[in-house]
Design a protein around this nucleic acid. Structure first.
Lengths: 121, 121
DNA sequence: TTTCTCTATGACTATTTAGTGATATTGAGT
DNA sequence: ACTCAATATCACTAAATAGTCATAGAGAAA
């Protein structure tokens, strides 16, 4: 029953992985960590998020294996431990760019027809 | 204000793309369509989901540009229009496999220590 | 037209979860 | 010991959403 071996269990794991990446706050944190390890205070300053919120999201990212936790004295440093997730973001960005370009082309073709307001339906 | 040009707007779009991929039902539909175009009735039979539910998820996938809609008489066929999203799923599967293998290695190392029940903490 | 099938949509419930404030915990310095 | 600063966790509210039932609409066949 523990979503870990059957075929639908694989889909559940994939869905869970994507769900972790489906919040702006967590993507912000991953982007910040993409530039190098940071502690929680630095992440607070960089993102403007609340402290409890950052801790909660870092725990989610950590549980997903995307970042690793490194206590250093009284503060805790986090760093990316899963380079794949940033590459995934890049792939999605590229895909969104492609969609946007296709939409722009369609709009240009439509506007070049110069019949937009002339439909006597 | 329409999440379409600023830096945080890009993150919002990426998060939205991942959110579409973060539900098992939608991944099921994408997998089915990966084998070729299907109409709604065929998808109902293939997935065991409810009809209203399938229609709703297909609309979400369609709005995201991942599938395209093709009415054919009284039924409607859907097909993948964004090959990238299946490749993303494959990347995530591979990543989950890597994680699982690392965990297995760690467990093997721990078990080979043969000290698991002997911790007098 | 009437009737049937197929698909889409509206209303509703239940679950999940992001964000926040308060509090607990931990480690360093006095 | 006490105090301060950094982080984690608990309790709570508000918002989003998956699933379901009922219903509407659209096309085919009688």
């Amino acid at each position: 029953m523990a979503a870990g071996s059957s075929r639908s269990g694989v889909l559940a794991q994939v869905a869970q992985y994507f769900k972790v990446l489906s919040e702006v706050s967590r993507l912000q944190l991953l982007c910040e960590l993409g530039a190098g390890a940071k502690n929680v205070t630095e992440l607070l300053a960089a993102t403007g998020m609340g402290q409890a919120n950052v801790s909660k999201h870092l725990k989610i990212l950590s549980d997903a294996g995307m970042v690793s936790r490194h206590p250093k004295g009284v503060s805790v440093y986090y760093q990316l431990s899963d380079p794949a997730c940033l590459r995934l973001c890049q792939v999605v960005c590229q895909q969104l760019l492609n969609q946007h370009q296709r939409q722009s082309q369609t709009l240009e073709q439509l506007s070049s027809l110069q019949q937009l307001g002339a439909n006597p339906d």
